[in-house]
Nucleic acid binder design. Structure first.
Lengths: 220, 220, 220, 220
DNA sequence: CATGAATGAGCTTTCATTCAT
DNA sequence: CATGAATGAAAGCTCATTCAT
């Protein structure tokens, strides 16, 4: 059952497809308010940033009244937190799954993590950008709650790279910088990739896997 | 001569020198009002973002009245544009200089560009973050004026990498992704580097030069 | 018969009896929705005032949904009017009864009125405070309808005191001020009296009867 | 020097005459914003209560913009607190003065206190009503700060009456109820007295002095 | 150069109320 | 009888900006 004002943690792990056309005023089926609002907020937060977005903008794009937002979310901040939380959990979940499918070879594990990350950055491009850019606009409570998750994700990368270096699989001298560089490169994808363009996701994954392996100096 | 309220384009390429001319009438006010404001704006824009910052916050941190702010800058937007413009010019200028000091070997040129970029991201950490994060908040006029510069900077990287690939110096299969990855890795430095920490700037430059060369698959 | 949404004037003079008729279909719902709402409104109006109370507060304290409230009362204003009207009628009714039990001696009649008033202020402390404090928030229609009642009550006091002065039973020089002082003193009881304290209602009545008689200068 | 946003305690002890005609849109002299706002707030808070008053109402009656209010007061609550605090201090101050002018005879002291109270209720009719009716709408901080004052005022009455009873000057059996009755009678004046009517302030004082003395059973 | 005072538009949020079910 | 979903108006407050001095 859906409670109208849920805590952010109630959010499902998978992406919600609201069927709302970006930019248009969609017809909202009765009861579909929550998704319409979440979808609109996702788009506009990504376009203009948290403080650059007014809830009037969100309501308008959602095709609902201003007050409808407050029926489903107790505040604008809650909306942001819900968006970021859901997408962060989703990412973490996908990494976890990807890693569970491979053995303990550091190169395989790095490949898996790069794949999960690139796929996430492409498939959930919008929210993932919100996550990186609007993190500082989370109120302390929300931020603290999510900081742990973020650190865990960092740790996934660190563990793999450190393990690879220890075993001699990777030969990079500075595993921390290697990790930061790989993550930065993957994250940047969300800022330039055009899903409608020629380059398909599998190719993209392959390219960034190669780059990552070169960064950790894995003999090709 | 500096007119008190300059358009953003008047800004000098280097950091403003506020010192009073010995013996003469100071062109810049003793109190350093202009710098106080620019400095405060830089800090707070970086901390909270453009829309998250009120000009009252800026004036307060600058220790000046609201109206004093308007004496020096005609608007909040102007303040942002001035900050970004100055720092973007500065970056471009440094790249230019660095490249002029080296020959035409692609590896040398890439090394020079990485060095200039890393140094810029460290020495002008705050503004450089504003540049990347608040670009979208520039009004069309300002943004268009600067987009050319940005594209030129991108071209600097692209030319070097493409040249290296053409010559066979670099062996990476996807020069565009290599470029984006290198730039992303360098840019990220501004988000985690602690100038007061153990790692010095020269070491940092060396580390990221190595990473960049690995990304373009330059034989070590 | 009680129609579910009655106008304020339908209200009975006594507290509503919600008991289900034995053997028949209950006219009033088992859950006692109407009473729950009235009770909650009484408490919260008294605590925070009419404009300081939201109907969501009322519904929540009543343990009902917002819409349930609207089933029983057409508006927030109606709720206030009903509360005040019922309690004002009640007061008037009690005064009437008390006076019918005594003869025409002004002192006896004053004693009866003081007793009725003090008892009312204690037994219906909450509503009586709402009546005095929220009168101004009645909409013109409702206020006008009740103003007559209020004036009648005032007249009850005035008649007795004037009669006493005319007959020489009371010797106060300014019967109007005497009346206002007595009423003010009795009304104030609702603001400080603690029903759970040591002082019982009969003693309280006696004390204020004495005070009233002293105010009208009745020889003791 | 006037600081724009003062704490409530900065307020002067005497009543401010703003020259604003009630109900009209007065012409505000430059810099006269503070008084215009305070005056308007006083009137409308008294008419409609704190929660029934919007700051737009206040600004409109003051003949100023909404934001002007926020230049002088940090919030609507501050405005209420300032109004109540100033008037409460004023009352206390006047009582103190009145008592300093008389000797230690309980009857004289009671007369002095009644006079100070009646005069206050008449001369500062509006604020004094705000004080009694809107006290509960003070936020905890403000209320606590003022509760001490209020208790001190109560104590002034209590000391006098208790002293009179102890000495045998007053013969009332229940000094607490006598005190509450006298205060209630005096306070009620603010609710019905018409300064423009026939009854002058000195006469009013005399009448209520008599009533008070009868309440404490002082032999006439 | 700089200030104090003021403004209008806009912000997030809450309100009483409605309506289809 | 009662609910869940939604709304338009208005609330308190903050914003960038202006202007007389």
């Amino acid at each position: 059952m859906l409670t109208p004002v849920s805590t952010a943690s109630d959010l499902p792990l998978d992406a919600v497809d609201t069927g709302a056309e970006p930019g248009g005023t969609p017809v909202i089926p009765r009861g579909g308010g929550r998704d319409a609002i979440t979808g609109a907020a996702r788009e506009i937060f990504a376009e203009r940033g948290y403080h650059g977005t007014s809830i009037r903008d969100i309501a308008k794009r959602a095709g609902l009244s201003l007050s409808a937002m407050y029926y489903w979310h107790p505040s604008k901040q809650h909306l942001l937190a819900a968006l970021i939380e859901e997408s962060t959990y989703d990412y973490f979940h996908r990494c976890d799954e990807a890693l569970r499918e491979v053995g303990d070879d550091p190169a395989d594990r790095l490949r898996a993590l790069v794949r999960a990350t690139v796929e996430y950055r492409v498939r959930r491009r919008v929210e993932s950008n919100i996550g990186t850019q609007e993190w500082r606009n989370l109120e302390p409570d929300n931020r603290e709650r999510l900081d742990g998750l973020r650190r865990s994700a960092t740790q996934l990368w660190a563990d793999i790279i450190n393990d690879g270096v220890t075993r001699g699989t990777f030969r990079c001298a500075h595993p921390g910088d290697a990790r930061r560089s790989i993550v930065a490169a993957c994250n940047a994808i969300a800022q330039w990739y055009e899903p409608s363009g020629e380059l398909g996701l599998p190719d993209l994954v392959e390219r960034y896997t190669e780059i990552a392996l070169r960064i950790v100096d894995y003999p090709s």
